[in-house]
Amino acid sequence: MTTPPRSPRLLVLSTVILAVCGVALLAVPHGQQQPAPGSSPVSVAGVPSSAAAAPSVIAPTIAATPSRPRAASPWPVAPSALPPHGEGTAGDGAIQQALEAAWPADLPTDDERELLATGRALLRADATGVGREKWPELFPRSPAVAPAFAAARFRIQAAIARQDGRPDKAVVHLVWAGTDRGGTFTDLRITDWHFTRTTTKGTPAWTPQPRT
């Protein structure tokens, strides 16, 4: 039985189809598969190519807790962790806890106790004038300058003592409230007193530094 001759037109069409398929195969890099229909193309790094066209987004980072508070951001804790202004003595415990959580203790207990006692006394002397005679080098006598805050309405809300960059330096962070001479009450005020460890006649002590 003889096979009927194929149409020249059919042979030409088959040749063209095979040529197109060959060019398409050559265009694909060796070893790389084409994505299945309906799937998202994926780059070599495993990131969808659609993400490359999206705007860049910077992920939030958690900064390391500084050893001392910065002037621009004295509270490295969420504001919600602090009591609202005017809370009174009921909120002082929360402030103390926030300070201790933000700056873990790094001083011997005796040194911390000494620094806290001196720092509190210095703040009271600076704000109210009570006890300034103990530190004449820090509070020169000036009768013309009256204390800024009333001693009767002055309160230290919280305080901690920590190293100030190295073992022989320390800083006392104090949070306090008071009423000024004009009758305005403010709380959550922040003051730092810096100290240097010195030795006098063989006895080490923490010496307060003048405030700048």
Rank of each mutant, 00 (worst) to 15 (best):
W176E: 13
A148S: 06
P55S: 02
I17H: 07
V57S: 04
H85V: 00
V44N: 02
A159S: 15
P143C: 09
G93V: 14
P79R: 12
S7L: 15
S7E: 11
S56Q: 05
W103I: 00
G129F: 10
R141M: 08
A71Q: 06
V44C: 02
A64S: 13
T2S: 14
A102L: 14
T191L: 06
G178F: 12
P208E: 05
A90T: 13
A59Q: 05
A27L: 12
A64N: 03
F139R: 01
C21Q: 14
P147C: 05
W206T: 03
L82Q: 03
P84I: 00
A159G: 01
A161C: 05
R68F: 12
G38A: 06
F139W: 08
G22F: 05
A102F: 11
R155K: 02
A101D: 07
S14Q: 10
R113H: 10
S56F: 13
D168W: 09
V23Y: 07
K169D: 11
S40E: 15
V77E: 09
A63E: 09
P210N: 02
R189G: 02
L188S: 04
V57W: 12
A121S: 09
A72T: 10
P136W: 12
A63M: 11
T184I: 10
A121G: 07
Q34V: 11
G131L: 08
Q33T: 07
L18V: 13
T15C: 13
V57E: 08
A177K: 01
L107F: 03
L10D: 06
V172A: 07
Q97T: 10
F149H: 06
G46A: 09
A98I: 09
K134Y: 09
E133F: 06
P76L: 01
P37H: 04
A64V: 14
L138T: 00
R124G: 00
K169I: 00
P8S: 15
R124L: 14
A101I: 01
E112K: 06
V23Q: 11
H173Y: 10
A148F: 03
G46L: 13
G31Y: 00
A59T: 12
M1D: 09
I160L: 14
Q96H: 11
P140S: 01
L107G: 00
R141S: 08
T89Q: 12
S80R: 07
G131S: 08
V57M: 05
A81L: 10
P5K: 15
S43P: 04
A159Y: 13
I95G: 03
K134L: 13
A64G: 08
A54R: 05
T65F: 04
I156N: 04
T128I: 02
A144R: 14
P147A: 11
P4D: 12
A148I: 04
